[in-house]
């Protein structure tokens, strides 16, 4: 066991963790269940969180490696920027909702990295977040609306 100190959604979090604990599990055990594990191998994007402003797959990230980092989850980002969730609600960028937390975090990350992204860049960036329901059109529209709000 070891002590992990991070800034989570802008607040300090100190947690006792196993040295091989994955970030997704640490977040969920500490009540941040917006982040979910889907594929578990870095491919689907459901577990996306921001570490020091960059998106990472929390399902393959050893929590101990992010010691001292700024972590933001879907809970913190949607509370910080209301345009983010509004874009997905207004453009209906979801159906079953399973992929949604990851889509929302990736959308925010794209806003940081390339707020003027064109249609192709949006599609390319978001292609790492799989969705089995929407066919991606409404997700892309949600992302476009969010970027336009920046």
């Amino acid at each position: 066991m070891m002590q992990l100190e991070i800034m989570l959604n802008g607040e300090p979090l100190s947690a006792e963790i196993a040295s091989d604990a994955l970030l997704v599990d640490v977040l969920r055990l500490n009540g941040f269940t917006g982040t979910k594990e889907g594929c578990g191998v870095g491919v689907c994007g459901v577990c996306t969180v921001l570490v020091n402003d960059l998106p990472v797959a929390s399902c393959i990230t050893l929590a101990a490696l992010v010691e001292g980092s700024q972590i933001w989850t879907v809970e913190g980002l949607t509370a910080k920027d209301e345009n983010l969730l509004n874009a997905f609600v207004e453009k209906e960028g979801m159906q079953c909702g399973i992929c949604t937390p990851g889509q929302v975090v990736s959308c925010y990350a794209l806003g940081l990295e390339n707020p003027k992204a064109n249609e192709e860049e949006i599609r390319e960036y978001m292609s790492g977040n799989l969705c089995r329901c929407t066919g991606y059109v409404t997700i892309t529209e949600s992302v476009r609306q969010y970027l336009a709000s920046k």
Binding site: G42, L54, A57, S106, G128
Partner: peptide, 9 residues
């Protein structure tokens, strides 16, 4: 390479 999450790190 992969997706943005892999490329970040």
């Amino acid at each position: 390479v992969g997706n943005p999450r892999v490329r970040s790190v």
